[in-house]
Amino acid sequence: MKREIKFRIVFSSIIFLIALICIIYSFAFYQGESREYISGFGFGLLSVSLFIIVKNIIIINNPKKLKKIEIEEKDERNLKIMCNSYALAFRITLLIEAFSCIIITLLNMKDISMAIASLLSIQLFIYLITYLIMSKKI
């Protein structure tokens, strides 16, 4: 678990650096219309990564908290809830996409319906690949 926390700190530090570069670039070098978007993106990433770094440093220095987090993250019920939620969210997304694709086709908006249909196909294709991988693993 300590290794995972250390990895999270390192990963968040990289994100922190990218965010810092975004902010510096947007204020010092970039003169285009998207300046506010880049700096906003940078500040968003900066605050989230800083929060994750601080949180994980606190956890790693507190063995009691580390154990609690480890239990919470490896708890089989929590993992099952997470898997079921992902599966349900995926099903709902597919249904929404399929229905909206039909409705948009009926409204004769071909480009949008093609875009949604492509997205749907990609999602189903990824599902098929992950299914094949998982069936070999388990």
């Binding site: 239990i71 919470e72 490896k74 708890d75 089989e76 019920r77 929590n78 099952k80």
Partner: peptide
Amino acid sequence: ALILEVSRQTISSLENGRY
């Protein structure tokens, strides 16, 4: 929960027969 290394909610759900 601490002994079995699961969350307290898991123990509660097990006892209630929900899980």
